[in-house]
Design a protein around this nucleic acid. Structure first.
Length: 212
DNA sequence: TGCCAGGCCCTCTTTAGGGCCTT
């Protein structure tokens, strides 16, 4: 059942950067947020049918031994397609995760109808003075508590979810906007950096107009 | 210690190049 206040925040670990060059997903992690709270979690390793490189083992902590007995991508992605239903989706650097989601679902002839928003593009606008816009840097910058392993799918999706909620709270507090629609966050992610304030003020005036 | 890609975004720009992000 789709809900305007529900989003699924997801993160893939993969064998590399490009599904068009044969890279596959090796882990999916996701959390579902309803009304500002994480209400459900999903995490599964999956066997990509190929050995992963030493670099990926070191980068993620996921080893070939761990993937040996994991279920195949088609089985896990089928479960994950059920998990995301038709909710809207959030990912950090969403263009990356969207490519893998599209590629893996295409292999099992599944589709999703939700829309994506990129939390990194939002963060580049909300936290313009951060040292950089890597996920780990922003988690520290915003003082989000957590000591889990970065570069694992569930932990990264949890941190992305907390960052997402922090950004929504930041905007709500600063501009006295009670709730941000998903379409507004999409607009925000595409707004030129020097126009973010203008966009939010225009939204505020619309909201106030609605209340009058 | 990344390589492969691709979207975004800035600038010494738009008939382009390169850094930032993701694994």
């Amino acid at each position: 059942m789709s809900d305007a206040n529900t989003v699924v925040v997801l993160d893939f670990e993969t064998t590399g950067l490009s599904p068009d060059y044969g890279d596959r997903a090796i882990e999916i992690g996701a959390v579902r947020i309803e009304n500002g709270k994480i209400v459900e979690r999903f995490q599964k390793l999956m066997n990509p049918g190929q050995r992963i490189s030493r670099f990926i083992e070191d980068y993620t902590g996921i080893t070939n031994a761990m993937l040996k007995d994991a279920p195949p991508c088609r089985e896990v992605m089928n479960e994950f397609a059920d998990f995301i239903e038709d909710f809207n989706l959030v990912a950090y650097n969403a263009s990356f995760d969207k490519r893998f989601l599209d590629a893996e679902l295409k292999k099992i002839s599944r589709v999703y109808t939700g829309q994506f928003v990129c939390s990194m593009l939002m963060a580049r606008r909300i936290y313009q003075h951060a040292p950089n816009h890597k996920l780990g840097t922003l988690v520290k910058y915003v003082n989000i508590p957590g000591e889990g392993p970065f570069h694992r799918a569930l932990y990264d999706s949890e941190m992305t979810a907390q960052l997402w909620l922090a950004m929504l709270n930041n905007i709500s507090d600063q501009y006295d906007i009670k709730s941000l629609t998903f379409s507004l966050t999409q607009k925000l992610a595409k707004t030129p950096k020097n126009n973010v304030e203008k966009l939010l003020l225009s939204v505020l005036s619309e909201v106030q107009g609605d209340l009058q």
